[in-house]
Amino acid sequence: MSITRCISALLAAGFLAAGLAGCASATAGTAPSGSTNASAGGTKATVGTVTVYAAASLKSTFTEIAAEFEAAHPGTKVTLNFAGSSDLVAQITQGAPADVFASADTKNMAKLSDARLIDRTPTNFATNVLEIAVPPTNPASITSFTDLAKPGVKVVVCAPQVPCGSAAEKVEKVMGTTLKPVSEESSVADVLSKVISGEADAGLVYATDVKAAGDKVKGIEFSESRQAVNTYPIATVDSSKNKDLANTFIAMVTGSEGKKVLAHAGFGTP
């Protein structure tokens, strides 16, 4: 073989080796879609999107937890859908693409469990109690639960099938007081909105909602609310296409990060 041919062959072999090495390096550094990556904390989460259906009273806390989750697991996306728990149950039952469901009571979660639409036993992660929300000026001079039943008082509550409405009914029975609301709403957020807008003299919402509203409303606590404590469960939906990611999100909600966010918002522990 001539010197020229020998040099050409060596150069070709060198380029081939470099190319193969480059391919191997690129392959090792690229994770295929749907693969698992280790987070900073060592927990593995599948890259992708997790869709969370959560009770309206969890909006501020779950929005914060979702942001922390995305930061801890690069490449993931949390899609949030907030509504009354009973509405969310209806949506999931009808085939809505939810990965995680967080309810404001155990009753609505049981509906999905009984229908075998939940992957595992739900985990209770928080508690909440009712509080009376009134406009800052408190035009109806509300000071107690029984004041809500006074003639002329425009009170708004959640519908009975909604957790906050069911809790209100329990308190009514304990107090022997029957309320005559001017409106029954499908979520606690809607009740709070009517109080803030001045459409109602008072509304029965959760203590966490009053705290989140700041100076937009005034909160009035009443001891009887402890007779109707709502427990919040969370679970992976059985039809989820990304159960690993769903379970990892639930682990954050029930872990130290989630507990810190929930406690700051005023939620109790189960």
Rank of each mutant, 00 (worst) to 15 (best):
G95Y: 04
A167G: 08
I234D: 03
A56D: 11
S86I: 12
A24D: 11
P139H: 03
V237D: 05
P139E: 09
P233I: 06
V78L: 06
V52L: 08
A12P: 00
S60P: 00
D87G: 14
T127R: 04
S113L: 07
A40D: 04
V162E: 14
E64R: 14
P122Q: 02
L80F: 03
A55V: 00
A31N: 07
S166K: 14
A102F: 11
S183G: 11
L112N: 03
P160K: 12
A71Y: 00
T106G: 08
K170G: 04
F82D: 02
L11D: 00
G255F: 09
S39Y: 00
L88T: 01
T4F: 11
T146N: 11
P122D: 07
T137H: 09
R120W: 00
P139Q: 01
G258C: 07
V174T: 14
K216L: 07
V205D: 07
E131Y: 00
A71E: 10
K107C: 00
A228W: 08
V210C: 06
M109P: 03
V52C: 06
K170Y: 08
A235L: 05
G48M: 08
T123Q: 11
V217T: 10
N230R: 13
G42C: 08
A67S: 11
A200E: 03
T49N: 06
D119G: 01
L112V: 04
P32S: 12
K218C: 00
L80E: 06
V191P: 03
G198E: 02
A98D: 06
A115R: 01
V100A: 07
T51G: 01
A200L: 09
G42N: 05
V229T: 15
A263C: 04
I92A: 02
D119P: 00
L80W: 04
T254R: 11
M109L: 01
